Simulated scan of single mutants.
Amino acid sequence: MQGGSLTERRKAATRLDIARTAASLFVEHGLRTTRAEDIARAAGVAPRTFYRYFATKEEAIAPLLTAGAWQWVEAVRDAPGALSVPDALRHAAARTLTPDPDDASASESLDWVRSLLRMAVDSPALRSVWNDACHDSEITLAAVLTARAGLPDGADPLDVRLTAGVAGAAVRVAVETWAASDAPATGPLGPAALAERCLTAAEGALKSA
């Protein structure tokens, strides 16, 4: 995310680097055997620096999940203004959940998300991080939809919040369903295709905004 002071951007970059390191170690060595100190060492920071950013090792992946959710919300914001809300949501999901064959880091991030969500099945702490990321993205999405609807700043009508909640749940279900399967990230069972199916199924509620 752009904006903020240089110091804030550096802190955000450090947090994201630690998050990627944590995800890599969790996938390679397992959640249970990976310590916060291991993540700090691999990320090239002191343990006290790690704990300045994160209270637990599980929380270290929050920036990675938040970044993915933020990209989807920003894609909704940037969708052509002529698109209806359901079409804008599907457009954004296709853009952010379809891996770019020329971008290895994007495919790697999806692989990490799949592995982390599988770990979350047996880890309440990881599930909490995922749920918080989803909830935060819904709040931001509501603000984006409010702007697309031309409502006054600060307006938070029930129908917009409901639309954001339904859309967020649709994408979350799609990503979780894909993560639980062995389907490739592209094709009819990939996260983008499943998100389109879920959003289309929920289209009646999504038209309210």
Rank of each mutant, 00 (worst) to 15 (best):
S5Y: 15
R9D: 13
R10G: 07
R10N: 07
R10C: 09
A12H: 14
A13L: 14
A13K: 11
A13Q: 10
T14C: 07
L16H: 14
D17W: 06
I18Y: 02
I18A: 08
R20E: 09
S24H: 10
S24C: 05
L25S: 11
F26L: 03
V27L: 13
V27M: 09
E28S: 12
H29P: 02
L31C: 01
R32K: 15
T34Y: 09
D38W: 05
I39M: 01
A40R: 11
G44T: 08
A46K: 11
P47R: 14
R48V: 08
R48A: 13
R52Q: 06
F54G: 10
F54L: 11
T56G: 05
K57C: 02
E58Q: 15
E58S: 11
E58F: 12
E59H: 05
E59V: 10
I61P: 02
P63T: 14
T66D: 04
A69P: 06
W70L: 14
Q71V: 06
R77Y: 04
L83P: 06
S84D: 10
V85L: 10
V85P: 07
P86D: 04
D87L: 12
A88T: 08
A88W: 13
L89T: 03
L89M: 12
R90G: 03
H91G: 00
H91M: 03
A94F: 06
L97D: 08
L97K: 11
T98V: 13
D100L: 02
P101K: 15
D103S: 00
S107K: 04
E108S: 10
E108M: 11
D111T: 08
D111R: 12
V113Y: 06
V113G: 01
R114P: 01
L116P: 03
R118P: 04
R118D: 15
V121M: 14
S123L: 05
P124H: 10
P124E: 10
A125K: 04
S128L: 13
W130M: 07
W130D: 13
N131P: 01
D132A: 14
D132L: 04
D132Y: 02
A133T: 05
T140A: 13
T140I: 03
L141Y: 03
A142H: 12
V144E: 07
T146D: 01
A147R: 10
A147E: 10
A155P: 00
A155C: 01
A155M: 04
D156M: 09
V160A: 08
V160C: 03
L162P: 02
T163W: 15
T163L: 10
G165Y: 01
V166R: 05
G168S: 11
A170S: 14
E176F: 04
W178C: 15
S181G: 12
S181E: 08
D182I: 05
A183E: 08
A183H: 09
P184L: 13
G187P: 09
G187N: 09
G190N: 08
G190H: 02
G190F: 00
P191F: 08
P191H: 06
A193D: 07
E196W: 00
R197F: 12
C198N: 14
L199I: 03
L199P: 06
A202D: 12
K207P: 01
S208T: 04
S208D: 04
A209E: 00
